[in-house]
């Protein structure tokens, strides 16, 4: 993995995990090549797992490697990861392109007006910016199947809400922290909700269970209430979108 400009840092999470942190994640701005380094190491571990590795959790700038301390030690694991990092890069999966319909505003997007006001834009401009961006799934985390989407236009950058909501509804499409996300299940959240997509991102009864994966790209399409109602019915009867490529 000679692509790395500087070697990653190892940070212990006690005696069961090691965080491999890749440098050059400028605070707030997320670089696709850092994500590539994370996914390359993840793919290398999947191909030849060092002894004792239980699972890995890719994030945008780091990879967490969870291990069984009764089967290995952190010192041995670090040596094994050093060896993997010295080898030629393993290409991660290429990723697919998805288009997700969204109904912006109204009951589905409680914060749309406030986001427009705080960003100095009209509601139409917010929707226009959000639907023209090509997002990339940087990681899944926090809740089952929740994608952290990089590629948010700078004009829509806002910090998280001061008063997080206890229950953000399933399908809510939101922005904060320089990213966009979709809530796959109802859960607590502090992001600004712009709209709702009817497409389930987490469905234990369906195959695949998780619709989006890291390195996938996503575009949102604005749809009206009538189309939303049709899509809700289609989804309830089992319809799922296909990736574009």
């Amino acid at each position: 993995m000679a692509v790395a400009a500087r070697p990653p840092r190892y940070l212990p999470a006690a005696d069961t995990a090691l965080v491999v942190e890749f440098p050059d994640i400028a605070s707030g701005s997320v670089l696709d090549d850092v994500l590539d380094e994370v996914l390359c190491l993840d793919a290398a571990i999947a191909r030849r797992p060092p002894p004792g590795v239980l699972e890995t959790v890719p994030a945008i700038g780091s990879l967490l490697v969870e291990y069984d301390p009764l089967q290995t030690s952190q010192a041995q694991l670090r040596a094994a990861l050093d060896a993997l990092l010295d080898q030629p890069a393993v290409a991660p999966r290429a990723g697919s392109m998805w288009r997700l319909p969204v109904h912006y505003g109204g009951d589905d997007g409680l914060d749309l007006g406030e986001v427009a006001e705080r960003c100095g834009l009209t509601v139409a401009e917010v929707i226009d910016l959000h639907t023209h961006a090509v997002f990339r799934v940087g990681m899944l985390g926090n809740l089952p199947g929740l994608p952290y989407l990089t590629g948010l236009p700078d004009a829509l950058r806002l910090p998280r809400r001061d008063d997080p909501r206890a229950a953000v509804p399933t399908g809510s499409v939101a922005v904060a922290a320089g990213m966009s996300c979709v809530y796959p299940v109802t859960g607590p959240g502090g992001w600004h909700v712009l709209g709702r997509t009817p497409i389930p991102l987490f469905d234990p009864a369906s195959d695949p269970v998780f619709l989006l994966l890291p390195a996938d790209r996503v575009r949102f399409d604005a749809v009206d209430r009538t189309r939303m109602a049709e899509l809700d019915v289609a989804v309830a009867s089992g319809w799922r979108p296909e990736p574009e490529r």
């Binding site: 006690a14 994030a59 945008i60 780091s62 967490l64 985390g141 922290a177």
Partner: peptide, 11 residues
Amino acid sequence: EIASDACVTGS
């Protein structure tokens, strides 16, 4: 706020 990264039980 940091770039979100993975947690473990006990973090």
